[in-house]
């Protein structure tokens, strides 16, 4: 295979971006391993992390094959730089406390589930097959993170305060999920991937409903931080990649 057309290039970039998104979020969640608030929840968080890393691998594999230059999933994960990663900024933000992690997770899951639900109908099997499989997992993710929004928002005074604080901090970030990049616009125009602008309304509906039940307030700040999807990241991604890629880059010719 090779990237012969504009469509191929767009599809390649999309698959790569989907992989980046799942990888960085999965990586962040994996940082909780061994440090969760109770053993059962440690297992739950790492399960989600494993799902996301698994998803990443299927996207990277498809991207690499489409590109046809012999790159592997590990070349894509370990040997690209910050400016080449197209994950949204939301997923690279630090875990913070359990509240920040779960609020970040919920805001992302609420989008992810809509994207996959639409993408499973894609005429392109590369997208559709992956979306069908991922949707089974993400239906669980969004249920898990929604439940925690309720427990934190409507739990104790402290949990409510922490959840609201996290929400206030994270609120400007999900906006970029609904702004299409060039390749997203091209593919959506062809009906191959969802039109992300159309996902904002159902996302907001679900988010508002959960926040209301959780007795949390929607932050008033309407500013949107965008850039991750275009390779303009927060300072956090540099550190994430430095750690993640360090060993692989130290011995670039090694097989593991």
């Amino acid at each position: 295979m090779a990237l012969n057309t504009s469509h191929d290039t767009a599809l390649f970039k999309q698959l790569l971006a989907l992989g980046d998104q799942s990888l960085i979020l999965g990586h962040r969640l994996s940082e909780w391993c061994g440090h969760g608030p109770i053993l059962e929840q440690d297992i739950a968080l790492t399960n989600i992390s494993l799902d996301l890393i698994g998803q990443c691998r299927t996207y990277y594999a498809a991207a690499a094959e489409l590109e046809g230059e012999g790159r592997t999933e590990d070349d894509l994960a370990y040997f690209r730089t910050e400016r080449e990663f197209n994950n949204p900024q939301l997923v690279e933000l630090p875990n913070g406390d359990f509240a920040q992690t779960l609020v970040r997770q919920f805001l992302f899951d609420a989008f992810h589930v809509e994207w996959l639900a639409a993408a499973q109908h894609s005429p392109n099997p590369l997208i559709a097959e992956r979306a069908v499989k991922a949707l089974k997992e993400v239906n669980y993710h969004v249920r898990f993170s929604s439940d925690w929004m309720l427990r934190m928002g409507d739990g104790t005074e402290e949990s409510h305060r922490r959840a609201q604080q996290a929400l206030d901090y994270l609120w400007p970030y999900p906006g970029e999920l609904f702004i299409p990049t060039e390749f997203e616009a091209e593919l959506a125009g062809e009906g191959v991937t969802p039109d992300v602008t159309k996902l904002k309304a159902p996302w907001l509906l679900r988010v508002k409903s959960v926040l209301e039940e959780a007795t949390l307030s929607i932050p008033e700040n309407e500013h949107v931080y965008k850039g991750g999807k275009w390779g303009m990241h927060t300072e956090h991604l540099g550190y994430v990649l430095a750690e993640m890629q360090s060993l692989a880059r130290t011995y670039p010719d090694a097989k593991w």
Partner: peptide, 17 residues
């Protein structure tokens, strides 16, 4: 057995573990 705060969590954790 496992520890959970409510039934929904117990089922989710049981699934996970």
């Amino acid at each position: 057995s496992l520890h959970a705060a409510d039934a929904e969590m117990a089922i989710e954790n049981a699934r996970d573990v």
